[in-house]
């Protein structure tokens, strides 16, 4: 059974989130990709909040703007400031990550925020092939610099162990199977205990068995309170989330709670 979440005005939503402490908040998000003739208004004013501990799936047709939204939510991309006529959007497009207005941050500060608060998983694993599984997972911790080298490696080992890769810590990334590589990538996204895990079609390159493995991992992470926002074309996978957001033509057309 599904419930419709009532959608109020952007300002009303903003006030609510300040009180509730949403982990992610998008206000009137616009994104225009390309320039001139090829310019494409990909997101047309998306408002969205993601609460702590929530597990959200974003679905929608190809080209509806799911990835674009995810990159913006994770601070990997920045919203467009004005429309094609040069008029600023009202209210201004903003993304808040754990309460922090990302528009106020420099590129370096935004990178640091991603390092601390966001964990990305993509369709492709993007592991550094010269490094072992354990080192790949430790890299974001090295960058953060809170742990010593030894501590970071130990934590990386634990994370991999939890994902069933305890026996392959020292294996070079390019000598793991596709499913194993994707699990290493998930462990890496979790390295710095991110406020939210953002996954763009994490099972897109995997076979049925490995896809189910990843879906199980996500479910168990969500159960432990990890906030997750994922994009997927897999209906079954999406239904395991607590909330499903449906996109079409750069806008949210459905926002449903699963039960």
């Amino acid at each position: 059974m599904m419930h419709k979440v009532p959608s109020g005005g952007a300002d009303a939503q903003a006030e609510r989130s300040a009180a509730s402490g949403a982990i992610l908040r998008a206000r009137n998000l616009h994104r225009i990709l390309g320039q001139g003739e090829t310019a494409n208004h990909v997101l047309v004013g998306v408002n969205l909040e993601v609460e702590a501990r929530s597990y959200v799936a974003i679905v929608g047709a190809s080209g509806s703007g799911k990835s674009t939204l995810l990159y913006l939510l994770g601070g990997l991309d920045r919203p467009t400031r004005e429309d094609m006529e040069g008029n600023g959007f009202v209210p201004a497009s903003r993304v808040f990550i754990d309460g922090q207005d990302t528009s106020e941050l420099s590129d370096v500060e935004l990178a640091r925020l991603r390092n601390q608060k966001v964990g990305f998983v993509f369709q492709f694993h993007y592991l550094l092939k010269e490094f072992s599984a354990q080192e790949n997972v430790a890299l974001p911790m090295f960058k953060l610099g809170r742990l010593t080298h030894g501590q970071a490696m130990a934590r990386a080992g634990e994370l991999l162990d939890r994902l069933g890769l305890g026996s392959k810590l020292r294996r070079k990334a390019n000598r793991l199977s596709g499913g194993e590589q994707q699990r290493v990538a998930i462990a890496r996204a979790l390295a710095n205990e991110p406020a939210v895990l953002l996954a763009d079609e994490p099972t897109g390159n995997l076979d049925k068995h490995n896809s189910e493995l990843v879906a199980d991992i996500f479910a168990s992470l969500a159960e432990q309170g990890q906030a997750i926002v994922m994009v997927t074309h897999d209906q079954a996978f999406a239904r395991r989330a607590k909330r499903i957001i449906t996109m079409e033509d750069g806008a949210i057309i459905g926002d449903d709670l699963t039960s």
């Binding site: 990178a111 390092n115 550094l128 890299l139 960058k143």
Partner: peptide, 16 residues
């Protein structure tokens, strides 16, 4: 190029 993208995605700056 892929490495650069992922390193940046989890916090490496241009300078890094």
């Amino acid at each position: 190029v892929n490495d650069i993208a992922i390193l940046k995605s989890f916090g490496f700056s241009r300078r890094d």
